[in-house]
Computed example of a mutant assay.
Amino acid sequence: MAALRGAAPAPDVEELEIALLLEALLQRYGYDFRAFERAAVRRKLRGALRQRGLASISALQEQVLHQPQAGAALLRALGVAPAAPFDDPAEARQLRAVLGACLPASAAPKVWLAECAGAGQAWTLAILLQEERLQARTEIFATVASEQALAEAADAGFPAARLDEYAAHYRRSGGSARFADYFELGGGRAVLRPALRSRITWAQYNLVTDASCNEFQLIVCRRALPDYGPLLRRRVLQLFHDSLARFGVLGIDAPLRADDALAHCYQALDAQQPWYKRIA
């Protein structure tokens, strides 16, 4: 009996479509998602299908191959979702404590927000550095893989009407200043003040393929790593190790396991969250 029109594709067909699409993204745009967790990729691709009103991943592939804008949009969708300022108060509280532990000893500390979740994450760090009196001598390197994510960061802002919402998150993170004072308001938008933005350097950088680019006193990558498969995760953790100064701090998404190759090089800083000091 012929398959019913409109029926969902069999799982093996969908898996083949995903494999072909990921190969197309690599060949057409140079971005390699093949070693990402397949469940995460599948979830994001299904979201892209719903958003575009498409029936199959093959139809999405046709758009991606022939329409550069569709390709750029899909690359953005497969990346880290943009974050709001202080959207994770627990992470911000821990980061506030970490800054005082790992940065003051360095004359010119560098922080790497690897595969940064947009301006919201970078602005959160800039405000924390200001409150810890470290902002003037600390450089934030915020890297993203796609050109679209880089463009979004360069033109970032958020609706001024959401200031009170973000201020509540800020207070839950331990902040006590007037949150709105960190922003310029105009045209219904809020943008971080230039003095704070000036210490943020945005760059396009691909964790999957690029080599170590600098030495950092703090590396934070808590939002991209959950999407990486085991081999890619090991590759990226080695990259971070090669880029982290001794006694620097690494903030990641999940605890290091005892059998991780680099686990012996790190000392846990918190029993609840996976933040580590490099000791070897």
Rank of each mutant, 00 (worst) to 15 (best):
A73V: 06
Q67K: 15
F33N: 02
F240H: 13
R5C: 02
A280R: 13
R162D: 13
G186D: 03
L232W: 12
F141N: 09
Q217S: 08
H241Q: 07
A195P: 03
E91H: 10
V13A: 11
T124I: 05
F216C: 02
Q27F: 05
R52S: 07
A92D: 05
P89R: 01
R34H: 03
L21Q: 01
R38I: 09
D259I: 00
D12F: 07
E184G: 11
A142V: 05
Y276L: 00
L95C: 09
A224E: 00
Q272G: 07
R76D: 02
A83V: 03
A39N: 09
R278M: 09
L218Q: 02
A83I: 01
D88G: 06
A145F: 00
G79Q: 00
L185F: 13
L99Y: 14
A117R: 01
A72R: 10
R178K: 11
R96E: 11
Y31R: 11
R172C: 08
T138V: 06
D87R: 12
I18V: 10
A153S: 14
P11L: 12
I140Y: 10
W202M: 05
A81F: 03
I57C: 05
Q238W: 06
E17K: 00
R235A: 11
R234V: 05
L16F: 07
D242V: 10
A8S: 12
A161V: 12
R278T: 06
A122S: 13
F179Q: 10
G71S: 06
T138P: 03
D210T: 08
A24F: 02
E215R: 15
Y170D: 01
L232K: 14
E152I: 00
L65I: 12
R172W: 03
V191T: 15
L75N: 07
K277M: 13
Q94F: 06
A10D: 15
N214S: 05
H264Q: 12
A263H: 09
L256A: 11
R234H: 15
G47Q: 13
F33V: 04
L25Y: 00
L125T: 04
N206I: 04
M1W: 11
V13Q: 05
Q135V: 08
E17M: 00
Y228P: 08
G30N: 00
L128H: 06
A81E: 11
D242G: 14
C265Q: 14
L75C: 04
A117W: 01
D155W: 09
A271K: 02
L45W: 10
R38W: 07
P226V: 08
R34W: 04
D260K: 03
R133D: 11
L21Y: 05
A39R: 15
E215M: 10
A92F: 05
A119M: 12
E14P: 00
A180R: 14
P104C: 05
R46L: 10
Q69G: 12
E215H: 13
A142N: 12
S106C: 08
A117K: 01
E131W: 09
A151W: 06
Y166H: 13
R197K: 12
L22K: 01
L207N: 00
Y31P: 04
P230T: 15
